[in-house]
Amino acid sequence: MMLAGALITFLGAAFLLLGSIGLLRMPDVYNRMQAGTKTSTLGSILFLIGIAVGFGFKVFIAKILILILFILITNPISSHTLARAAHFFGIELTESTVRDNLKEDEEGDR
């Protein structure tokens, strides 16, 4: 049982690490946000579930469920808010960007 939990936790930690590497390698803030949000959500969920499995499911699971619920609600909201603010603030997309419909529409309004 403990070994299974440890392996789940290891997978989660691997995703967290990958997310940080993505944060370093991606070329602009939106791509970084994509890498960061997705991997940190799933990575932390796996990390927590692995610990709950390994160290006694009954005692840990209630609070860990709340934590997972919080992470699932708040993480996408915060990254959406940040992306919206960054676009409004005028942070440029990277050079290889194909198109930007939002900017076109905003300029069309003016």
Binding site: G12, A13, L16, G19, S20, L23, V29, R32, M33, G36, T37, S40, T41, G43, S44, F47, L48, I51, I64, L67, I71, N75, S78, S79, L82, A85, A86, F89, I91
Partner: peptide, 22 residues
């Protein structure tokens, strides 16, 4: 930019939560 730093802060806090649970 500031947005990059905020993204990095976000990721750091999520990882710190995992470490606290550990």
């Amino acid at each position: 930019t500031i947005a990059d730093r905020a993204v990095s802060l976000d990721v750091m806090t999520i990882i710190a939560i995992s470490i606290i649970v550990y």
